[in-house]
Design a protein around this nucleic acid. Structure first.
Lengths: 186, 186
DNA sequence: TTGATTTTTTATCATTTGTTAAATTTTTTC
DNA sequence: GAAAAAATTTAACAAATGATAAAAAATCAA
């Protein structure tokens, strides 16, 4: 998905504002397994995924995957971006990726100068917020197998592209539990 | 908490922009038990809490509380605000409340006209996003009793002001489980 | 205050999910 | 294509949480 389409998909932008954003973006590619953003570090770039798949995880006793990003989605260390503080998430590439890179610093300047870009940034955060809130609520009143069925319905392609250990972690259960659930469904 | 302080606390605003916002705000009070926003309805106002306490819940088989709002916080039907679509949450007052009311429609105009207000709205969504994401992650790798201890630590006053059934629901467990957890801790 | 109502706790048993280990299947590498 | 490594499933048992009902405590209302 090319950068113009990605930006517009977040929120429609006037041509001039979109060009201002695009002028600050550069293309870059990394191989599967590469760590794009690191936990406990103030990150200074955000990325838009042109091609490929990534996951965000938090390091606890084990790794807890809490987000998958694919074509068209935005990779960001929220704490760095919002509060200039070290983030909690590590972003790992699950496939070879082509990315658009944008320096947070430049984006901040654009936010201050261009009301359209400021509203674009607002829309981005608002949409992410709704997605996160819906997941929180789903976690709160669905059991593991309902959440698995929901994921299958909403993002069937993920099951083809991501190994089940990561899916289990994303659903908040162990891999063994997920296997059990899959066996019961058949 | 007065409106000027509430607005600045979300994100510092230049005096003129703050006045523009304040001019669109009116004061209103409701009694405990009042339903401020309704699920499955496009809501046209947002509220800032001057005094009091509210909860947001989703109606499933039972009511699932997923948010508490107190002095200084913003009451909003996210889906209405962001997508102009009926929201999933109902907001109920848990105490008599004094509120500041703001029409979404007027806020949208301000977003388009004033870059400072647009960035203020961006910051609002970003901060809410971080809070929601942290709760999602906490839900994903903490068990019920850890989440209860975390809530006691971060928001001890909630336990004084909210009945335990709502707290249990917020933590994603039954009231009976919460009682058991409380008994084990003592 | 007292009786009624609501909230919270306790108890018992059922269900779901976790843990560990081993078996099986799939993928990778040479 | 065979051996090695990684991912997934299965099994057995443990721990956490849910469901239901009843008891106890706290709050409310006359």
């Amino acid at each position: 998905m090319d950068i113009s389409k990605i930006l517009d998909h977040i929120h429609q932008l006037p041509e001039l504002s979109k060009l201002a954003l695009q002028n600050n973006v550069s293309e870059i590619a990394f191989a599967k397994g590469h760590i794009l953003l690191k936990a406990n570090k103030i990150e200074s770039n955000i990325y838009f995924i042109k091609k490929g798949l990534v996951r965000a995880y938090v390091e606890k006793d084990n790794e807890v995957t809490f987000w998958f990003g694919k074509e068209g989605e935005t990779v960001i260390s929220m704490k760095s971006y919002v509060e200039d503080q070290p983030g909690y998430e590590t972003i790992e590439l699950l496939e070879d990726c082509e990315l658009y890179e944008l320096k947070t610093e430049n984006l901040r300047k654009l936010f201050n100068d261009d009301v359209h870009i400021a509203n674009w940034g607002r829309k981005f955060a608002e949409k992410e917020l709704i997605k996160t809130e819906e997941r929180l609520i789903s976690k709160q009143f669905k059991n593991a197998s309902e959440r698995y069925l929901e994921l299958m319905k909403d993002h069937p392609e993920l099951l083809q592209r991501v190994q089940l250990g990561h899916i289990a972690s994303y659903l908040g259960i162990t891999q063994v539990s997920l296997s059990r659930i899959r066996a019961e469904i058949k």
